[in-house]
Design a protein around this nucleic acid. Structure first.
Lengths: 211, 211, 211, 211
DNA sequence: CATGAATGAGTCTTCATTCAT
DNA sequence: AATGAATGAAGACTCATTCAT
């Protein structure tokens, strides 16, 4: 959705612009975000933004897209779960995930706020798609668990999904908040403490859903 | 925080204004909400709004206060839980709660959106207080459960709180969405179906937290 | 120019309203003066002001008229100058005039500001009349002086008028400022000091204009 | 105090904007002056004014500064008085000063109105400074006159200052009014008549203050 | 008549978007 | 393509004036 002009920019500049945009949207919301502010933070002229995008909404939409793409890239780089058990997955990769949050708190927060609907109906389509993809994936996990017999099969998948999402989202928020406060090099203590959150979550998730 | 002029209005008008405001804020967010729109929906002149409130922000703040107060009044009117077990509480009063949501979807949605942080930092103080009150209450429930032996005591209260909140919030959202679609007179089928959501939630909550 | 309603008010209230108006106009100028403010200071309802006067401008115009009338009344009560020499006049009645300023600083200041054109073209007619009356009087003084031989007759009356006005206005401003700072009971020292201002003025006036 | 954007404008435009502003303020006073009006007279869009100045008050403040600066420039260009006697000064440069007024009646009137306090307390600081500078200069003249023996030394400098200011201000107002009515090319008669005003003033000043 | 709530025209001001260089 | 000045639509807010009680 950006214009041709934007795509021709060198990657550094592109990134600078997108990060400036995300920062502004994240800090002030869509309405209060100022094009001027984004331009300044990106180190370009206000007019240039309009060489790159049709209008503010386009810029926002692409900010979402860009953030999610980069978010995905980071996740893909992590231990892929293949056939791994969900619980296993949560526990095994936690430190890498902490690291990711620590390095990219902006992207992570923005993506979360977006999926949580903080930007209203601005990008419903993307939002819907995103949710659907996540849900489908989680439903698969649940179906797998049922097959393996690790998840109770007396409850509807939809119900279990709600439970699963409720618990994981809440804990993830907490973890996000904790990790944002990490110094550049988190202490072992901090890491352990945060990991214990993950463990507790897994314990509760497991116990809640098991037969 | 409203001006004297507002307090002197007859209750009908007050309510009309507040509902118009909440509707506008809920529909468009704070920034995009137009005073003109609120005035029109309330059936008063733009200038009148300014006789009632200092400015847009004041109006918003009072909208929040008003919504929460009315919300509380409605809840108070419901089966008080006294010494009742939480699970018991969820199950017993559910139909009354459905009715409340059905009658006041606007207030309920607005209050929820607000507590979920959709209005940013506009009323942080109220938000904080509100969260605190809720949390304290829930922590008490958890402590009670531990004493009675119905809740596992190997996990920190804070952790159990996250679990509890995550699960209940998610299910409540789902219930809210369902109930909003009820016709003026919900069918028995709809009610049963929604009740079953509550039951499932309780089942999962219980199993997740029990020893 | 006030409405019938105003004239029917008892004198106390009339005065209260007029003083409130003058105070507001004096403090904020015509444009920034608020009807609400005047009403409050007068202890009446905003609407009442409109029972008394057609609009803000009318109120202003009458404020001017009222102030000048009262001003005149006060002056008339003072040593009338009859055939007295101007210089004599300035010197003889000064203490009474100080007292008048001390008692009615608001009226005096307002009248002066008005004649000085601080309210722009709002009441040109009154202004013009007022100036004319003053001028005619002063011109008479000058003519008299010339006849008596105490004023040089090689200069045009108009020129001498400018001189006379320039000097007296400037000194009067100074005196006004001084007297405004008097406590309720001015010390003899203060009085003497201010009187000396008058004496100096007379000296300079005399010497400037004499043959 | 203008924004960077204003300073970067070419001089013609800057001047056009400032003159439009001064004209509007002069004609209607601060409160009634409309930004829209200024913009139109300057031939720019309303919004542009806000690219140049933070708000109306800033624009007013700078109008004052700008007017005074230009006023000073014009005066500086005139016969400098060096060691000249004040009376000498008044008499010698009068035609140049008439010319200045004729060419820039707006600036002159605005500057005068401002120093006379017609704009209330909007720019007290500038006003105070301005007055102080003028006074100091005039006091020096008086002190010099006393030393040379051309001014009586039995009166306080402050008193003589009042006299001097009163007389010159009044005459200058009269001269201003006269000159404003000059056609583009004033007739010799007009010039002579106005010069005679200056002469009379000097005569009276001299006689009033001399030993 | 007094009151004070209701009204809406009129302004300032903001800022996304356009445009000339 | 980049820049930043120009534009004007849109919206918050004020307050003189009207009006219902």
């Amino acid at each position: 959705m950006p214009k041709r002009t934007f795509n021709r920019l060198d990657d550094d500049k592109k990134e600078k612009v997108m990060r400036a945009a995300i920062e502004e949207f994240q800090a002030h919301g869509f309405e209060s975000a100022k094009i001027e502010g984004i331009a300044q933070n990106a180190g370009v002229a206000k007019g240039s933004i309009y060489q790159y995008f049709d209008d503010k909404k386009e810029l926002f939409l692409y900010s979402v897209t860009w953030a999610i793409e980069n978010f995905m890239k980071m996740i893909d780089r992590q231990t892929p779960m293949k056939d791994m058990d969900v619980y296993e997955y949560f526990l095994s990769g936690s430190r890498e995930r902490f690291e990711m949050i620590r390095k990219e708190p902006l992207l992570v927060s923005f993506a979360i706020d977006f999926t949580y609907g903080k930007y209203g109906s601005l990008a419903e389509e993307i939002n819907r798609e995103l949710k659907q993809v996540g849900e489908e994936y989680e439903l698969k996990l649940i179906a797998n668990g049922k097959k393996r017999g690790t998840i109770r099969d007396d409850l509807d998948d939809k119900i279990l999904l709600l439970f699963f999402q409720g618990v994981t989202e809440k804990f993830n928020m907490e973890i996000l908040a904790k990790v944002k406060n990490f110094e550049s090099e988190p202490t072992e203590e901090q890491l352990v403490e945060t990991e214990s959150l993950v463990k507790s979550m897994v314990t509760l998730l497991k116990q809640g859903m098991e037969r």
